[in-house]
Write a protein that binds this DNA or RNA. Structure first.
Lengths: 232, 232
DNA sequence: GCTTTGAATTTTGAATTCAAAATACAGTAT
DNA sequence: ATACTGTATTTTGAATTCAAAATTCAAAGC
């Protein structure tokens, strides 16, 4: 038996992305991001570089680079000469976040109605049905994951790279706010109905209706999250 | 005479921001940003860490940290194991950029009509007049600077921090596109008229009209930039 | 008892060093 | 002449080291 641990299988040549080996700081950033999102690192808490280095088993250099990335995403704050701290979840900022996201979703809707191909619409419909299956079986985690995937596909199919990137970044903070509000899964039924409305409008290619459906969906989500944050 | 070079004067205590001494990487990032924006570092060109370190007279550590920041802003790309390169100005991406900015401006407009105080509106009107003075005197640089300042104030007064931050970041790329299109100053007269329309709507607190005015202004700017990029 | 002062310690900022990967290049074979 | 291979050089990635700043904490002064 071969003991060289991870020989990379030669990639399938198809449409696979560049697929570069990740730098250490990227791995660390990804882990950190998850820890912050899920509240494993408590909002407001100071981050000790030393402790984190030990737990990740890397030196301070890649950790500090990772922190810079997270800082740009707004998940941590860097205080000169006093290290980093996990950004607090500020309801006021979360409200601002949704105020913006609502409009980005509306833009997505307009673009989607114009640009989505029939095949893409069918794909979304399929994902939607899959999600409904999870809903019926009460499989929360899978439901949530598919939900996220659908939203990501919607943003992708909008065909605007800048929009996709913005929604991705802002969605990080929203996810964090959901965790903080303890409702990472909530609103099953309303959410499912809203998705139905979105799919319908998309299939009719009614830009205005689609924009409104997506706008409302984001608005309701925002209201729920803010409600959750208020009653903590 | 005292030869300790830069003794810091004790700050005015007033509303001055935290006012921390900048880390080296922040200084470097700021310089790099400017160099990229103004095209001093040619789009597409590889960045030699060594050369830049020498010209900035810093070690590689802060330079690499700065590059990570710029990468997150989309001004440079980091290719693992092969350094950084200045991001190309891709007309397609610039178009996407404006498509998003147009909607963000519209949102700003709606918020402004609701939230701007009378004093703030007066302040904007004053800035506008100042700008017109520069216009009449054909003082391009000052005109441009005030133009930027007005837009920033508009975003600030919108009262949505997320929106302000997004507009600031996206504006970096727009500025770069303008330079690339060789029109960092262009469109004096139309622009001045559009600003007039914006101020009018704001003073009437007509949210819809204001949103449209700002939307159109951004749209025209985008068209001009894209036109400039096309005919290079 | 409370605040202040000033070392000792810890933590961060930045330079340096070492290792690994990529690039450039010369020589060889076809 | 061109393509290939192996080696030298350069460049990047990450750890380590050194210096500067902040924090801790105990003792002194009020």
């Amino acid at each position: 038996m071969d003991d060289t641990a991870d020989v990379k299988a030669p990639e399938a040549l198809a449409g696979s992305a560049p697929l570069r080996r990740l730098s250490l700081y990227e791995v660390v950033a990804e882990q950190l991001r998850e820890m912050v999102l899920e509240g494993e690192l408590t909002p407001g808490s100071r981050i000790s570089e030393k402790r984190l280095c030990e737990s990740f088993e890397v030196s301070r250099t890649p950790l500090r680079e990772a922190l810079k990335v997270l800082a740009n995403e707004g998940l941590v704050e860097l205080l000169p000469n006093r290290g980093a701290k996990v950004t607090e979840v500020d309801p006021r900022e979360v409200a601002d976040l949704f105020e913006v996201m609502v409009e980005l979703e509306a833009l997505s809707g307009h673009l989607l109605a114009r640009r989505a191909s029939d095949a893409e619409i069918a794909e979304l419909r399929a994902l939607h049905h899959q999600m409904l299956d999870h809903y019926r079986r009460q499989e929360r985690v899978e439901y949530f994951r598919l939900n996220q995937r659908i939203h990501r596909r919607l943003a992708e199919i909008s065909g605007n790279g800048v929009l996709l990137e913005l929604e991705t970044t802002l969605n990080l903070k929203i996810t964090r706010a959901r965790y903080a509000a303890n409702m990472k899964l909530g609103r099953w039924d309303e959410s499912a109905r809203e998705h139905e409305r979105i799919l319908d409008a998309l299939e009719r290619r009614d830009g205005e209706a689609l924009a409104n459906a997506m706008r409302d969906h984001m608005r309701y989500t925002g209201d729920a999250v803010l409600e959750g944050l208020a009653t903590r």
